[in-house]
Design a protein around this nucleic acid. Structure first.
Length: 542
RNA sequence: CGGGGCGUAGCGCAGUCUGGUUAGCGCACCUGCCUUGGGAGCAGGGGGUCGGAGGUUCAAAUCCUCUCGCCCCGACCA
């Protein structure tokens, strides 16, 4: 491709609406343009990068024995009603009607469609295991699309679905995908980690996320320095420390005035105690009537997902002010466990060791001091319901957890029989018995992977693509247009140039910073992350 | 959906508070000259229904009302 013919609208300044680096650089390097919130056009350069990511994915998926298909983006509501997700998926599911008023949706994911396909066409255990994948545009009507390709509403995703005879087979399929994903992200030149994750709305029994480590990542990851344990903080377990009871003797309960001091910091400062002496009481609701109280230490944060699973709820949110007032008798900000009745109280393990604690008094501008477990209040159960923090104990070994940021570029789930049972995807085993297939599903955000590569590979001058993702591998740059020799050499090889070729042929050896870029908008292709490797000139090398 | 902010040329902005020339500036774009070993220079030029609708006024980018779009902070997720 001749550089001068390329549709490559570069910008010298950051567009005002771009926040993160990968978004800014992709816009400035002329790779993407926005059509609407979270909806982007891929320009020639950007699409080449996308295609390179896809190519790596295809090769590794095929190598792992998966077969490529392409399923419809528009899907009948009836299938989603059958799986039960029409009512549960929420507003992210873009729903529409055709001219006959039949309801449809635009696929945010394809468990329903692929399970339907398989139930109609696979009958025998002889046909299993089966793994089908596709690379396709998805639509999720995200509440807040942001950061360019990092969280779009329309986005390109590779999704794969495995079908096995039994749990053992499903675990093998899962492991194969795990390994394939590792190869894919390695080949993309990314520093990543596979971490244990929550299964979220997709459902299923366990899952791993593939995180590209980057400070701008939206997810927090807890990793152990001593063993291989790594988990999303949504899920990360915390080693239970032996409760170290303080030596302090329990003192008499005392109510104190704390005028307009609501937050932990305010109260701790006002009463001159450490935040770890406070016990936070959070009233949560499942949105359909159920409420519960959660107790965590003042210096800890509630993990709503852990609590949600513990309570067996489908949804969880902090209760609104009116609900808090109704169940505690006091305004929000002053809740406490003492005298709290009529709802389940769950306590984090961390509060077991707190003596003479400070809690809300369930009265406006009042807190209680010297609150003690079992004397003043008794939780119904203790559990791990808080967020892992830097320095917490690893649940698997004696090591310590560290928290870092990551971008979720891939997610694999072991689904079990959730969808095969709902939709009747059964097969006949060797004994002629009908059994539900055991499923897994596996996703990669293609555009997000490209964006993550930029977050991880850039310098002050622009994008430094890992070579396997670079839009072009060589930029031939004739530096002396007056020399017919130089010009004709460049012309004659511009279609066939490869890096190796140019190493042999070009009079000038590429510089030491191949694949690296110099600046956005520079005429040598720098800043778009095109390696400015080969130069043709007549100057003698020193 | 709650909270905050922004819509003026392709991009980045000024002008709006305090209504009043032909709506400006930088980059980009076009033409000519010149230049060409790292984002050239000089001269000239094109491009705006000031997000939209309604209102107030002799007069609206500017004031009022409504509306649409977009961005940021929280719950969702590849």
């Amino acid at each position: 491709m001749r550089y001068s013919r390329l549709l490559l609208p570069t910008l010298k300044e950051d567009p005002a609406d771009a926040e993160v680096l990968s978004h800014k650089l992709m816009l400035r390097a002329g790779m993407i343009r926005k059509l609407a919130a979270g909806i982007y056009t891929y320009l020639p350069l950007g699409y080449r990068v996308i295609r390179k990511v896809e190519k790596i994915i295809r090769e590794e998926m095929n190598r792992a024995g998966a077969q490529e298909v392409l399923m419809p983006a528009v899907q009948p509501a009836s299938l989603w009603q059958e799986s039960g997700r029409w009512d549960h998926y929420g507003k992210e599911l873009l729903r529409l009607k055709d001219r006959k008023q039949t309801p449809f949706c635009i696929g945010p994911t394809h468990e329903e469609v692929v399970t339907d396909l398989v139930r109609m066409n696979v009958r025998s255990y002889r046909e299993l295991p089966l793994n089908l994948y596709q690379i396709q545009t998805k639509f999720r009507d995200e509440i807040r699309p942001r950061f360019g390709l990092m969280r779009g509403r329309e986005f390109i995703m590779k999704d794969a679905y495995s079908f096995d005879r039994d749990e053992g087979g499903a675990e093998e399929s899962y492991q194969k995908m795990h390994d394939a994903y590792c190869r894919i992200f390695e080949r993309c030149g990314l520093a990543f980690r596979a971490v244990e994750a929550d299964t979220g709305a997709i459902g299923g029994s366990f899952s791993h996320e593939f995180m590209v480590m980057a400070d701008t990542g939206e997810d927090a990851v807890a990793t152990c320095g001593a063993c291989r344990y790594a988990a999303n903080t949504e899920r990360a377990e915390i080693r239970r420390e032996e409760a170290r009871h303080s030596e302090d003797a329990p003192e008499a309960l005392q109510e104190v005035e704390t005028p307009s001091k609501k937050s932990v910091e305010e109260v701790a400062q006002f009463l001159t105690v450490s935040p770890s002496r406070l016990i936070k009481t959070l009233i949560v609701s499942n949105g359909s009537g159920a409420i519960a109280a959660a107790l965590v230490r003042g210096d800890h944060a509630l993990n709503e997902i852990k609590l949600k699973h513990l309570l067996g709820w489908e949804e969880i949110a902090l209760a609104d002010a009116a609900t808090v007032e109704r169940v505690t008798g006091g305004p929000s900000g002053f809740s406490g466990p003492v005298g709290l009745t009529g709802l389940p109280i769950v306590a984090d393990h961390g509060i077991a060791s707190v003596r003479n604690a400070v809690t809300g008094a369930n009265r406006f501008d009042r807190h209680l001091c010297n609150v003690n477990l079992n004397r003043d209040f008794t939780p119904e159960r203790f559990a791990d319901i808080r967020m892992a923090m830097d320095g917490d104990g690893c649940p698997r070994c004696a090591g310590t957890l560290r928290i870092s940021r990551g971008i979720e570029v891939g997610h694999i789930f072991k689904l079990g029989t959730k969808y095969s049972e709902a939709l009747g995807a059964n097969y006949l085993d060797e004994d002629g018995q009908s059994r539900p297939m055991v499923m897994g599903c596996y996703g990669i955000g293609v555009g997000r992977t490209a964006a993550a590569a930029i977050e991880q590979n850039h310098d002050q001058d622009g994008i430094c693509w890992p070579l396997p993702l670079a839009p072009y591998s060589v930029l031939v740059l004739p530096l002396n247009m007056k020399s017919e020799e130089v010009v004709s050499l460049c012309r004659s090889h511009r279609h066939t140039a490869s890096r190796d070729h140019w190493r042999q042929r070009a009079p000038t050896e590429p510089g030491g910073d191949q694949g690296k870029t110099v600046r956005c908008g520079r005429p040598d292709g720098a800043g778009r992350g095109m390696p400015s490797g080969a130069e043709a000139s007549q100057r003698e090398e020193p």
